[in-house]
């Protein structure tokens, strides 16, 4: 026994450097594991997408601070912050949410792709008053988001947040908007599959008219539509959606 221990000691002495290296690697691995445990395997990102002027930044400020402050202008860069939702401030042990506000400018939209791996849910903000004039643009953007998600491994749900419901009769209902979008996306399905874009898979069920239900069945992407108002801070549906995506724990 003693002999064995001696031998071990000698071996350790000889192999001190390799032992050190071994521990170093172990520590690094541990650090990685801790990081993984802290940030979680799934991420806590909620994306705010949609065309310009729909109210993404206002919703972002409302969710984060509970007020819209001095108003907003067109965003120039992606804003993201891991924060407690304003409506849940003061609560203990609530999991923070990473809100990411992607500018709606056509040249900035594709920036969301960098965030998709950590995304748990997408809030697609729509201006319900200006919907009809923007519907093709909205459908196109949504189509791109969906095709991007369909290729991804995880399929976060999408909330169509029909903003500006405070405008009363001018604002279209969320049901109407959802139906029109389904129609527009159906058109896009036929036109988009040409000139090098045909490699993308079909969204919805092949051979059937596109609908959100079919999308959920075939690709597992759940799309719901709700009327909200960022100005009046009527965002219960949004916070509810966020908490379904990123549980309070």
């Amino acid at each position: 026994m003693e002999q064995f221990l001696d031998g071990l000691g000698v071996h350790l002495g000889e192999a001190r450097i390799s032992t050190l290296a071994f521990f170093l690697v172990l520590i690094l691995l541990l650090l990685g594991l801790i990081q993984y445990l802290i940030t979680g395997p799934k991420g806590t990102t909620i994306l705010l997408l949609g065309p310009m002027g729909a109210g993404k930044t206002t919703i972002y400020l409302q969710l984060r601070d509970g007020t819209k402050h001095n108003g907003t202008v067109t965003s120039m860069q992606v804003t993201s912050e891991s924060c407690q939702l304003a409506s849940e401030k003061g609560g203990r042990k609530i999991r923070p949410v990473t809100l990411v506000d992607i500018p709606g400018h056509p040249r900035m939209r594709h920036r969301f792709e960098a965030h998709t791996p950590a995304t748990r849910g997408i809030i697609f903000v729509i201006d319900s008053a200006e919907f009809l004039s923007q519907k093709t643009d909205i459908a196109e953007q949504l189509y791109e988001v969906i095709t991007n998600l369909a290729a991804a491994r995880r399929k976060p749900p999408i909330l169509l947040a029909c903003n500006k419901s405070d405008l009363g009769a001018k604002a279209h209902t969320s049901d109407f908007i959802r139906k029109r979008i389904e129609k527009e996306v159906e058109q896009l399905r036929t036109t988009r599959r040409s000139l090098g874009e045909g490699q993308q898979g079909v969204i919805g069920i092949e051979g059937e008219v596109f609908s959100m239900a079919a999308l959920e069945k075939a690709q597992g992407i759940k799309v719901t539509a709700e009327s909200v108002s960022a100005l009046d801070a009527d965002l219960d549906d949004v916070t509810g959606f966020i908490r379904r995506c990123v549980p309070r724990r």
């Binding site: 930044t57 400020l61 402050h69 001095n70 907003t72 202008v73 067109t74 120039m76 804003t79 506000d101």
Partner: peptide
């Protein structure tokens, strides 16, 4: 750059939306 207005000063109300 994220789009939140911080401070404004105005002499007359703007027509249209020049900032956007």
């Amino acid at each position: 750059k994220g789009g939140a207005l911080l401070w404004t000063w105005q002499m007359t109300a703007l027509r249209g939306n020049p900032i956007d």
